Amino acid sequence: MASNPSKYKFNHSMLRVKDPQVSVKFYEFIGMKLINKIQNPDVKFDVYFLAYDTPSAVSAGKHWTDREGIIELTHNYGTENDPDYKVHTGNSDPKGFGHVCISVDNIQAACKRLEDAGYRFQKKLTDGRMRHIAFALDPDGYWVEIIGQKPLEETEATTTTDVTTYRMNHTMIRVKDPEKSLAFYQDICGMNLVRTHEVAAASFNLYFLSYGASPADGPSGVSPMAGQEGLLELTWNYGTEKDADFKYHDGNAEPQGFGHICLAVDDLEEACKRFEEKGVNWRKRLTDGRMKNIAFILDPDGYWIEIVQNEKLKQRSNW
């Protein structure tokens, strides 16, 4: 049976971290739960999967391959003891990956809670022109955008925040040519373009894709997608597509940081056949190397996209 992209899920985004205990503590502080850990002592790295998992969460209780909105933290043994080790966050040259984003019930209270706990910010709510978003910094300096699920005026009178209502909303990567990238994520990966935000005054556009439908507009000042998980944000800075020498950093060449995004598919073998027929560029076919339960394709900018089996739809691996 042919693979059906409407059953795919934007499963996770992978970030390399220096000290997993410190990083896991941060993501647990913003309400996420460690739902799986895969240890690979033979090749000296472990991976930690975190997601929102309370009864009110979008994917509560599901197998990790049957979810969206997961953050995978990869720890290479020994980095926590290396005073010179640091990750590359993607927001200084060479640029590429930008941020992950959580949506919260009360953005003022959520930001204050983070600040009171001693976590740093790249941008506080009071900084700059945009007073409805903030960027916290995780222990490695990755940017974590914070957006509200409600208008500011609805939450200003309260000082509490409930982390069980939070969502891992989206992951942002910069792209050189939006036409090529949009065609890839829609035609090859089967995602839907659910929103376009043009910021001509600052010479950039944002494109949001997901496996869901376009949401209806909500209250002013609130993203209509704030209650969702599994969104991919593509950021295009005007003019990059015209520069033959311009390219973004994939995060896997030095300096390393962000590693990949991951799609969970309905049938891994059939999905890979479909990708082959579509003429994708491969980083790793299923038959390559030791690991026969994952594949990697490359998007137009060279970002790695891991492909795994959704184990709810078809059992294949003993994850």
Rank of each mutant, 00 (worst) to 15 (best):
E229I: 12
E229W: 02
E229N: 06
G230S: 11
L231I: 15
L231K: 00
L232A: 04
L232V: 04
L232F: 04
E233A: 05
E233M: 05
L234V: 03
T235Q: 11
W236Y: 14
W236P: 00
W236V: 02
N237A: 06
N237H: 14
N237F: 12
N237S: 11
Y238R: 12
G239Q: 11
T240S: 11
T240N: 14
E241P: 09
E241R: 09
E241G: 08
D243C: 08
A244C: 00
A244M: 03
D245P: 01
K247I: 00
K247G: 01
K247L: 02
K247W: 04
H249N: 10
H249I: 10
H249L: 10
H249E: 11
D250V: 02
D250F: 01
G251L: 06
G251K: 03
N252C: 12
N252T: 14
N252G: 03
A253K: 12
A253S: 13
E254D: 11
E254M: 07
E254P: 01
P255Q: 09
P255W: 09
Q256H: 03
Q256E: 14
Q256C: 05
F258M: 02
F258T: 04
G259K: 06
H260G: 01
I261R: 00
I261P: 00
I261F: 07
C262I: 02
C262Q: 14
C262A: 15
A264E: 11
D266W: 13
D266R: 13
D266M: 13
D266V: 14
D267Y: 05
E269T: 15
E269S: 15
E269R: 15
E269Q: 15
E269L: 15
E270T: 13
E270R: 15
E270Q: 15
A271L: 02
A271D: 04
A271G: 04
K273A: 14
K273N: 15
R274L: 15
R274Y: 12
F275C: 07
